[in-house]
């Protein structure tokens, strides 16, 4: 009797499920950044809003990267359903606090995928997902840098908000 399951795909079902869940998480991250960018734009933070529009695009490419991987190895990529994301923020800093929290959650989720791959000996997916491990290290670093700027620039000083907007926007540029 042929092993039809293995002939179809190298993905074990549990890995396929967590990869689809990660797709959803990346797509959600994209929407979160989009909402943040929009809030920044509406509130006069034009430059940092451009930075987060860029982040939204980047999350979309993360989403597609995993989505296509699932299909490439014979699995079934499922278009995720994305719920509501926060549209309103109290101030500039809270936007970037949320961004860091969200990136940390993504890093944890990626780590779990690596652990699961090792558990079921899916070394191909482990190798694939390692790209995201590195990416998350950079993403967290950027998100932390944004918050660090609030410590060195007084948001309530005369040009504080203007300066923060400008400096946060530079974070993306240094990549």
């Amino acid at each position: 009797m042929k092993d039809l399951v293995r002939l179809r795909t190298s993905l074990k079902e549990e890995i396929e499920i967590i990869l689809n869940a990660q797709c959803k998480m990346e797509a959600e991250a994209s929407n979160k950044y989009l909402a943040m960018a929009s809030w920044l734009e509406r509130n006069g933070y034009k430059q940092s809003s451009d930075y987060l529009y860029g982040q939204a695009e980047e999350e979309r490419t993360h989403f597609l990267k995993i989505f296509k991987y699932i299909n490439d190895v014979g699995g079934t990529a499922i278009t995720p359903v994305i719920g509501e994301v926060t549209q309103e923020y109290s101030d500039l800093k809270s936007v970037f606090e949320t961004a860091l929290q969200s990136e940390i959650a993504v890093s944890l989720s990626i780590n779990k995928i690596v652990a699961k791959c090792r558990e079921v000996s899916d070394f191909a997916t482990e190798e694939f997902i390692m790209w995201f491990v590195k990416e998350q290290r950079e993403e967290e670093e950027n998100a932390r840098r944004a918050l660090e700027l609030f410590e060195v620039i007084d948001v309530n000083s005369s040009a504080g908000k203007f300066l923060l907007d400008k400096e946060i926007a530079k974070i993306g540029g240094k990549e």
């Binding site: 009797m1 092993d3 039809l4 293995r6």
Partner: peptide, 16 residues
């Protein structure tokens, strides 16, 4: 289907 797959993986395709 999955049991069959596990058997293939464990015992090697030629044995089954």
């Amino acid at each position: 289907l999955e049991l069959n797959s596990v058997l293939h993986e464990t015992l090697g395709t030629l044995v089954i």
